[in-house]
Design a protein around this nucleic acid. Sequence first.
DNA 1: AAACTAAAGCTTTTT
DNA 2: GCTTTAGTTT
Length: 702
Amino acid sequence: MSKHVLLNVLNSQQRDAVLHTKGPLLVLAGAGSGKTKVITHRFAYLATAQKIPPSSILAMTFTNKAADEMKERIEGLTGKSAAGLWIGTFHSVSARILRKKIDRIGFSNDFCIYDENDSGNLVRSILKEFKIHEALYKGILSKIYSLKASLVAPEDLLANEDSYGFDEKFARVYVRYQDELKKNNALDFDDLIMCAVKLFEQCPEVLQKYREEFSHIMIDEFQDTNASQYRLSKLLASKHGNICVVGDDDQSIYKFRGAEVRNIRAFMEDFSKTKVISLEQNYRSTQRILDIADSIIARSSDRMPKKLWTERGKGDKIYYCVATNEQEEARYIAQAVKELYLKGKYSYRDIAVLYRVNQQSRALEEAMRENGQPHRIFGGIGFYQRKEMKDIISYLKLIANPDDSVSLKRIVNCPPRQIGAATITRVENEARKIDKSLYKTMKHILKSHGYTASLKDKVSLFISIIDELIAHREIKLPELIEMIFEKTGYLECVGEERANNLKELVIASEAKDLRSFLDTASLFNGLDENNADDCVSLMTLHSAKGLEFPVVFIAGIEDGLVPHFHAIKDPEELEEERRLFYVGVTRAQDMLVLSGAKRRRLYTSLQEQQPSRFLSDIPSGCYHCIEKRPRADAITSSIINLPIDLLNTSPFAAGARVRHPKWGIGVVRDSYGETDDVKVMVNFPSVGMKRLSLKFANLEKI
DNA sequence: AAACTAAAGCTTTTT
DNA sequence: GCTTTAGTTT
């Protein structure tokens, strides 16, 4: 794409951001203001107009999805493949650097990556050994994570014991955890960033190499960076200062994961002469939606001042529906979805239902199912998170890295091989004695005397399977996986559904080598399915960030949910809830429907719920209140009064009697769609409700 | 070692 | 209320 065209499609602020290629740049990108467009066009501009080699531009995001989208759009703009470029998540970029250089700080370059599950198992086994109540592992793990996010290594903790306020017991667990990771030749997620920082800080010549390699740096969702990610970016950028960060403090909703909004202000201080550009024109939502959004966020304290505006016009009315309980609320939403669909302007895929906690999806999913709305719940367990996937991946991890004792433990008795807890404990004790990995210890046991024959037999059988697989580690990955199935008899010990999932794993492994496949499996949530099916999307407010939908429902606008009751006491957390609500509202393009219930079942008790305190910040004229009465009929009573122009005026309007060549006489229950493609719902006594297109159905009015 | 029962959880979660 | 996990039984 030519330079001219590249710049022409941008507004003046966006263009300023693209043209500011030298020195630090902070882009405050409001919701829907074309943030990704700026990043991708800036990349393309650097590469084409400024002749910067694309391989010298480092672009980091948080999610694989965002990285993929960025790559795709850059490919579209430059007409060249983005494969192999430095566009990726913080974690994948760090992993890529560490794969080449981590030996410089005393690790092996063929390290494996532990996901949260693996880390959790490791912490639990340490707690067991230390005789600490195992159920505490979650809290301990999250402490470890937050320390790592702040770049506090175990040795720093020990050196500074008092100042962090952690007890000695915890410090011992942390030290041990880190030792075990190293022994297993493994890094956890946070280590990826922490080790990259360590590498750069301890090896100036490595830092120098990458500083020269990355002449330009761009960072997306900057408000979500934690201390270690910011440090990493700063290390790489501080020399030339060609760093562009894009973010929105109003959309900071991951403080609980270590994100530091303060990094935005810190950036302006750390990089003097930072140019600040605000993107305030919103291309997504109607004015009514922005008004609501603004009234919510304007109350937020200590934010960078900005005000979104749009050229899209006022738009449809916004609704707030109060239902008696969560089932009624869900039914209301399901019926409104149905109505919107039947009116023809929106497909199911245009509609999202957002909520604060996953638990809310239950009632919603039930109502959708009853009403026959195709829907998809996002945010369950990912593709690679399923038990069967993790098992096979553990086999692969073990094949790639036999010293990975966490993976070994996971699959040593799966399928059952008579190697239970007692046997494992014996091997583990031995391993501690000779300070070797479980795999090496098992080999040691086979060569030693003084063990029972039955133990040796069991271990020998297992080791022979693993060694045979290791001997074939170079064959094509799908074949290797099939070989695991064959040698272990895994498929026979799982049900049909799981076996089918595993077939997908085989397919996903095609054209990949072992190493890169394992990185993919650890660092990717799973197949980020682009919803090809026409489905309503159900997801939490958190997972909706970065997405947009023509129609958005937000359920549970009640105190206790939005804001969540865990966040009500702490003013800072309350602010985050406000921003979360803001994020939800700003997902909507055309239509926004809020809802709440008067009573809701939370765990065991039926709670009386009050409307969200955030609603009182919205001027009452901004939305229409609806009381949901039970037993409203879906088709005959309109739940949402759609604008007149959407209503259909053809002769085949609701109530008309028609004759169909095959099904005989029926009654039109609803009609909708564009004038050149009108669709009707007809109830035929003989076959029931049918959805027909007037163009093809050959209906006769009688 | 597997199968069962009791008990304790229970916000969000990019990697 | 429901789901996960810890502990106990067979």
